[in-house]
Design a protein around this nucleic acid. Structure first.
Length: 471
RNA sequence: GGCCCGUUCGUCUAUCGGUUAGGACACCUGGUUUUCAACCAGGUAAGAGGGGUUCGACUCCCCUACGGGCUGCCA
């Protein structure tokens, strides 16, 4: 970016606490986080809980959990929009005093009737124009009123959007939106603007379902004489079929992905690349993403979720991960999906196995499956295929092998010649010997390398398992 | 209905008037190999359709089709 300090970058994520953290919301949060963190700015979190009917503390907790799992840390306290309602009302009244808003005594029924009449006359659209817009205060009834913004009726409002470009909205297509309800509570459209202004938000990066709303919100900024933030409306995420991502596509919540065992770093990488690109960059760390991320790299078309690519990306991050950190995340995953915790000995074995296990696993369930040999204890019960590999002849070979193993140095270098010689002495290829070994050690026909397994569980345990299987 | 946004391989995308339209995932083939993976090499595969503008359009303009969003005293 530029060398001069410039104005501080402040971004925010502002979800409604009406459910879990949607994967699309997670990506929106990620983009805001990346943008702020890459520029030494702040990333704020605000819960838009002004809808008291639908907002729940459970949903807020779920959203915070989702963000935390994704590794997106926010600055300062979580702001509750609802708790700022007095401030919102204050601004509404200031607009009233400035003459940029007015009291509207129209009832819901009157408004509905107005629209119905317009439509009956064949109007292509029915923008409600309140009869109170320019009414004489002397005519005001003693009744509850809503405060409406006095929006320009002619001309156009231009949104200069970093992603969508220059978007022009005709003012005549917008009605005078209500900023304060007749019960005195603020409406979302007012609250976002007031909060974003008060919180010093410099860049509003959010879903493009708000693109049209931006025009009305910009009018509030103008009415209050506030600086309009930089707009960046990003396309929503779609399901594999190109339709808006919904529950019927399966996983839509960030926590669903955690439960499926994707590592968070891989998830961040994948989500960053979904709808954003920087040349040919595909696999990168979050630190690298912060350096590269920019608004101009965001695409204008909605992107589809592709699980295969997600898995591939996660596989890279699994392999890149540092062993201790990976073990930590693995254990967090096991707790999240209610699997029994690792015992101390198992942790040690896992740590020893991670260097090779992580190279080929893409998710934690896959990692755990490959680590099964170190999780089980004697006697190893072979599955059907493994049992087939333990035929009488093979068991005889295993039996003849144990004395040699007993006196061997427990390193791959020492083990290799022993096993290849035994295979040769029996007139079979190493593959034919590996199968019963695998069966005896892991009880399965698909496992990591027999050398790797034997080295991890150790000499005594290896020999004991071979004896179990050959006796 | 009105308004707004979008449309490059199956998918994510690069390209910012002149390229054999590049990369990644997936898929196919081959290699490596003690199984599954992983890994290595190669391959198939794209500018929604139609008009313009231009010496030259994936790139700029218009129309159509398709997809999405907004149109609330919801957020």
């Amino acid at each position: 970016m530029s060398h001069s300090p410039g104005p501080p970058v402040v971004t925010r994520f502002a979800p409604s606490p009406t459910g879990y953290l949607h994967i699309g919301g997670g990506r929106t949060a990620l983009f805001n986080w990346l943008y702020a963190r890459g520029r030494g700015g702040k990333f704020l979190l605000r819960i838009e809980d002004t809808d008291r009917e639908r907002s729940t503390p459970e949903a807020t907790a779920a959203i915070l959990r989702g963000l935390t799992w994704l590794g997106l840390d926010w600055d300062g306290e979580v702001v509750s929009q609802f708790e700022r309602r007095d401030r919102h009302a204050e601004v509404a009244h200031e607009m009233l005093a400035r003459g940029t808003a007015y009291k509207c005594f129209s009832t819901a029924e009157e408004i509905a009737a107005y629209r119905a009449a317009k439509e009956a006359k064949g109007a292509s659209y029915a923008v409600f124009v309140s009869p109170w817009r320019d009414a004489d205060p002397a005519t005001f009834p003693k009744a509850p009123y809503a405060i409406r913004m006095k929006a320009p009726r002619t001309g156009e409002t231009v949104i200069e959007d970093e992603v969508q470009g220059r978007v022009v909205i005709q003012n005549a297509t917008l009605d005078d939106m209500i900023v304060l309800r007749s019960d005195g509570t603020p409406v979302y459209m007012l609250a976002v603007v007031v909060d974003d202004h008060d919180m010093g938000v410099s860049h509003v990066i959010r879903g493009d379902d708000h693109l049209n709303n931006a025009a009305r919100q910009q009018m509030v900024y103008d009415a209050m004489g506030w600086t309009v933030p930089v707009w960046a409306h990003i396309p929503l995420i779609h399901g594999p079929d190109g339709k808006k991502l919904s529950k019927r596509h399966g996983a839509t919540g960030v926590e669903d992905y955690q439960a499926m065992g994707y590592p968070a770093a891989g998830m961040r990488n994948y989500l960053t690349r979904l709808g954003w690109a920087h040349g040919d960059a595909e696999i990168f760390t979050s630190a690298e993403a912060m350096q590269m991320f920019d608004l101009s790299g965001i695409g204008r078309a909605p992107a589809r979720l592709d699980f295969k690519k997600l898995e591939n990306t996660c596989g890279h991050h699994m392999a890149m991960a540092e062993d201790a950190a990976l073990l930590h995340e693995l254990e967090a995953y096991m707790i999240a999906v209610d699997r029994p915790a690792l015992t101390e000995p198992q942790r040690g074995l896992m740590l020893a196995a991670l260097p090779f296990l992580k190279k080929s696993a893409k998710t934690f369930p896959e990692l755990l499956d490959k680590a099964d040999f170190l999780l089980i204890s004697r006697p190893v019960v072979p599955d059907e295929k493994a049992a087939q590999a333990l035929d009488p002849v093979s068991r005889g070979i295993l039996k003849s092998l144990t004395p040699q193993l007993q006196s061997a140095n427990w390193t791959k270098e020492a083990l290799e010649p022993i096993l290849t010689e035994v295979a040769a002495a029996n007139g079979i290829g190493f593959g034919k010997l590996a199968a019963p070994l695998r069966a005896a050690i892991a009880g399965k026909s698909v496992t990591p390398s027999v050398y790797d397994m034997m080295l991890v569980i150790g000499q005594d345990e290896s020999i004991a398992r071979l004896k179990d299987a050959s006796s």
